[in-house]
Amino acid sequence: MKVLRLPKERLDLFASVLQQFGEVHAPVEQNGKYAFRALSRWSDARLDYPRTILPPKKYFVPPKDTLFQYKEGLGYVPADLAADRRIILFGLHSCDIYGLNILDQVFSGKYDDPYYQARRKNVAIIGVDCIPDEHCFCHSMRADFVDKGFDLFFQDLGDRYLVMVGTALGDDMVLATGSLFEPVTPEDLAEYKQRSSAKRKAFKLHVEIRDLPEIFELEYDSSLWKQVGDRCLSCGACSMVCPTCYCFDVADDVDLGARSGSRSRTWDSCLFSTHAMVAGGENFREGRASRVKFRYYHKQRGFVAEYGRPSCVGCGRCISACPVNIDISQVISQLRGIENATA
């Protein structure tokens, strides 16, 4: 991997060069929280943010995605995926890049999803490193470092960045700046290693995932699921904000007179009472507890069996978005019989 350095005072210049590669989106502040938005000016970008409300999955699997339309006289009109604008997504944390790599396995693995894939091609990814807060446990989920899934990755070294070039597109961005980027020095590498080790020690939240699928298997009938189910509001917030929750519901909208309409898919959640409902009104997971349990089992056990790792990346969004403070790290600790896993 090509590795370079960029003095921080040159970041603005780099950002201005980036515009020729597409519309630059980055985290911006929104009443004390953060969201990825198109930038009207580079100074709005906040690269020192803890986490955005929604993960970058919104760019690839939008909350509501029109798959095709139909119109009288024209028949079916497919979504014009090629017309999507090119976007540079600046400022993703490792956990979110890892989340996208997981979505790749789902949408570009056994079953190709053209909508997802078209957007993946149109959106460039530039990562930045981060400092964990009280809800972060990405190191436990092995998602605190990524070696793929980005075009460029910026590691903060104080007054400069160590920049990892992940793809040919990333390299093109570097080359387009002329001599803005410099070769790394031995001091940069020493600083990087020192910061990397310090970051590992900065995590306050720890979740042990070794043998977790087995623990889940053993605790299938645990009374804990009822306790969590009694608290869960089935509000779906945790699923919406999860970088790897990808369930969707497909429905047709018919216009008045049925001469036109559209088919779209909308984010769904296994916590909804209708998620496992089938024709005839039968429901495989009628109780809230069974739905909560399903979400945990799919993330931490089912996904491991299918793809070799949990689909959770430890971003902490579900913890900060839950109105009744259901905390995945505590649920796992309780399941393991450990009272306080944050020590």
Partner: peptide, 27 residues
Amino acid sequence: ASLLQGDPPLYPKYPVCTECRMREYNC
């Protein structure tokens, strides 16, 4: 539109939180 086709319309049964999160509003 749906009733004219002989179908019942499909409405969400989930709570407002879901739509609030989809639109990325502050909680």
